[in-house]
């Protein structure tokens, strides 16, 4: 529901990352990572991004979203696995003492500029 705000942040960070000497360059793609647990709907984000970039230096850029799986680590038996249903207990020993290794990401990783 806050995808418009997230898209705004993504665009601001991406614009600020275009090197000084490349100010005329065309940005082809913005790469971001979204964890499966993050409260962001990728398709809504893309929709907002496409609308918001129109009159910015990112006009025409694609938003490339990499979805990051929820990976858990069991502190009791050291098992590591991908969580794909909302069950946060160890699939091997049933322990609830988990570390979530990935899946909360909401990161911008890079921009791609036309050569």
């Amino acid at each position: 529901m806050h995808e418009m705000g997230i898209a705004t942040e993504v665009i601001e960070i991406a614009e600020a990352s275009i090197p000084e000497e490349m100010h005329d360059a065309k940005v082809e793609c913005v790469n971001i990572n979204i964890g499966r647990l993050a409260a962001v709907v990728p398709e809504s984000l893309r929709f907002c991004f496409n609308i918001l970039i129109e009159n910015t230096r990112l006009a025409g850029a694609k938003l490339h979203i990499r979805e990051i799986p929820v990976k858990a680590y069991c502190k009791d038996c050291k098992h590591e696995w991908i969580i794909d249903a909302p069950v946060f207990t160890c699939t091997q020993c049933d322990s609830g003492a988990l570390d979530i290794l990935s899946g909360r990401e909401l990161d911008i990783s890079s921009i791609e500029i036309a050569d």
Binding site: I6, E9, I13, I113
Partner: peptide, 8 residues
């Protein structure tokens, strides 16, 4: 490609 790696 220009790496950024920043939290949104």
């Amino acid at each position: 490609e220009i790496k950024i790696v920043r939290k949104v």
